[in-house]
Amino acid sequence: MSFNKKLGSYPGILITISLTVALFLIGFCGWIAISSKELIKYVKQNIEIQVYLERDLGKDELAAISKKIESFGFAEVKNGKPQITLTSKEQAAEIFYKDTKEDFKDVLGDNPFRDAFSVRLKEENITEDKLVLIKTEIEKIQGVFEVEYAKDFLKGIISNVNKVYKVLALIVVIFFVATLLLINNTIKLALYSQRFIIRTMQLVGATDFFIQKPFLIKGFVQGLIASIISIILIFLTKYVSTSQIDGLNLIQNNTNIVLLFVILLILGPTIGVLSTFQSIVRYHKMDLDKLY
């Protein structure tokens, strides 16, 4: 027994286009979410706390303070070396002069700056509670005058991170639900034009699987094509955006983006097959009168 693989006037192009648009929107939101996460990570990795020291400390005392800070395990480690940098008061004075072109010595007659350690923290330590703990612990060290960090800036970042993720997650869920409803309705309408072919095959003794097979294969192929097209569109969008917007390439996590593409590649055929199966099953059990 043979079956026409073209499935009559089955509107496959419409289904493929609808699924492509939906998958592109889901993938685009996913890319924005990944980029946002990487942006926050990049900002956090470049945040430092300033440990201002008492005046007139010797080299041994400075080394001891550095070792003590290192022992807490708060500092980021790069190439096996904790990211703790000493800026002497002389260096601070030079930086101030370069930035302002003002010589404070003419007014104050002395260098008002202090020696200070700049400590780059591990990303997991960039939370309000941990920063307060770090500040308290370091200020207990003998020879430390004060610990400062961009409190308001960090608070803004930390408080807004969850908001961004929640909004993006909500958008992705909305698009996903809309995709299911859209594709389900489109496939139902498409299969409606095939209802008499399905009933005719039942009458001549075709099994359910034999009837479903060409529709399911077509649903799989349509989903696969939609996934590939949406991935290409997202890749082109990413390429154009990173080439036109300075610094955007610094927050691209290629591993996560590849994972996103894999998810889209699986999601398209899965939606195509499941939606087709759900829609075609209802015609197997439908009364003849209802077919008209």
Rank of each mutant, 00 (worst) to 15 (best):
F145D: 13
I40K: 04
C29D: 04
T255H: 15
T16G: 12
F74L: 00
V161C: 10
G80P: 03
T200V: 03
L224K: 03
S66G: 05
F24I: 10
Y165P: 10
F153P: 08
L267T: 09
S18H: 00
T186S: 09
K44S: 05
K218Q: 02
L248S: 07
Q50H: 09
Y239R: 09
G80T: 00
V43G: 06
A22Y: 01
Y52C: 03
E90G: 12
K166E: 15
I84Q: 05
N125P: 11
F261C: 12
S193E: 07
S71F: 08
I197M: 15
F145N: 14
K81G: 08
L14D: 01
I158M: 05
G143V: 11
K81S: 12
K105T: 15
T200I: 06
M201H: 07
L236M: 07
K44A: 06
V177K: 03
A93F: 13
F72W: 07
Q83H: 07
K78R: 10
A206K: 06
N256G: 10
K151V: 13
G268I: 04
I197W: 02
K188D: 05
N253W: 01
K218M: 06
N160T: 12
S193Y: 00
N4W: 14
E123L: 13
F28V: 09
I217T: 10
G73I: 02
F145R: 15
A64Q: 07
F117R: 04
R120P: 08
L224A: 10
I171Y: 07
T87D: 04
V107T: 11
L39R: 01
I171C: 11
K44L: 00
F277I: 08
I32F: 13
I65P: 09
F277S: 14
N125G: 11
R55I: 10
T242D: 04
T87W: 07
N256Q: 13
V164W: 13
K166I: 15
V240Y: 13
V77P: 05
A63K: 11
K166L: 15
I95W: 11
N162I: 12
E90C: 09
V147R: 03
K166C: 12
L86Y: 01
V164E: 04
D106P: 03
Y239E: 14
A92Q: 06
F261T: 09
I234M: 12
R195Q: 06
D129M: 11
K101F: 03
G12W: 12
V167R: 09
A63G: 00
N111H: 05
E139M: 02
N162H: 14
E102A: 12
H284N: 15
N111Y: 04
E123G: 05
L274C: 11
A169L: 14
G73P: 03
G143A: 05
M286G: 12
L224Y: 01
V240A: 09
A33L: 12
F210K: 00
P112H: 04
I228S: 06
L189S: 04
E76F: 10
V221C: 06
A92R: 05
R195F: 01
T186E: 08
K67H: 01
E137G: 04
L86D: 01
T255V: 12
I69K: 07
I211T: 00
G12C: 00
V119R: 12
L291Y: 09
